[in-house]
Design a protein around this nucleic acid. Structure first.
Lengths: 134, 134
DNA sequence: AAAGAAATCAGTAATGATTATCATTTTTCA
DNA sequence: TGAAAAATGATAATCATTACTGATTTCTTT
């Protein structure tokens, strides 16, 4: 198997993700890292996102409006996703107690191995609501 | 505003989605409808998926392995998604009571309008587990 | 410290799902 | 029925992501 070598770029990518609560996509991360590494390639960002995700250092929040979004906060927490602008906001209230025991129920019912779960809320964020005052 | 005219193809697309529990993607639906409408275009499928979703007759389950997946069952229910093969399985156990009251908490905390939520479980399905006997 | 091996990278081409376009066909309703 | 509106087929365009390749960096073993 391939080992993992040190990479300053990978560290910068990870730092960029952890530096924000915007749950960025590859392009955002690329532009952020570019400040310190002007010659970085977008392909390098994508390649390292896969590696960081496999290592469990970041998680994917899925595809929102065509772009995959990432989070450096790997502790269990829920998100609100605005269906209008695509903004993703952390829900600080912890719902783990409500859900963690459900994993076992799903495993039993379906005969599968549940490794994670995700609770997301969808709707209109505050900015989009006032933007259309409704 | 534009009205919505009758369309036999749209009905067939909706029927195709409701005829299966596989939570299909556009390509699957296209091939299914093609049996009865050999000249249907893939673009028509995509166009009608948008319309059916806007009407609330189907829901999107998000992008799994690069393809958006759809469900004709719009009643609240959770899904298990296999991270290996992309299979999506309905969870029959109803968790609505665990979650519905959380919408309000999220609205209060973030000042947003929550319109829906989604609880998904991820892991390895029975087939993928035995396929790698582990 | 230096060399060879392995991993990472930049730059660029390729991929593939989805969307847009437009001329033609179908549906609606007066 | 016939004109206006909506839907469609065929195809081109878009755009996020992946694959490729030769150069560069990191690691290991002297």
């Amino acid at each position: 198997m391939n080992r993992t070598n040190y990479s300053a770029k990978r560290e910068a990518i990870y730092s960029a993700i952890c530096s924000t609560k915007t749950h960025p996509d590859a392009e955002w991360i690329y532009n952020k890292v570019k400040i310190d590494f002007p010659n970085i390639s977008l392909g390098t960002v994508y390649r390292n996102l896969v590696m960081l995700r496999n290592e469990g250092k970041i998680i994917s929040l899925g595809v929102v409006k065509g772009c995959e979004r990432f989070d450096g906060n790997v502790r269990e927490h829920s998100h609100f996703i605005c269906t209008e602008c695509g903004r993703i906001i952390d829900v600080s209230r912890n719902f783990a107690l409500h859900i963690s025991n459900l994993d076992e129920l799903v495993q039993k019912e379906l005969g599968v191995k549940v490794e994670s779960h995700d609770l997301a809320f969808y709707g209109k964020c505050d900015l989009c609501r006032e933007g259309q005052e409704k």
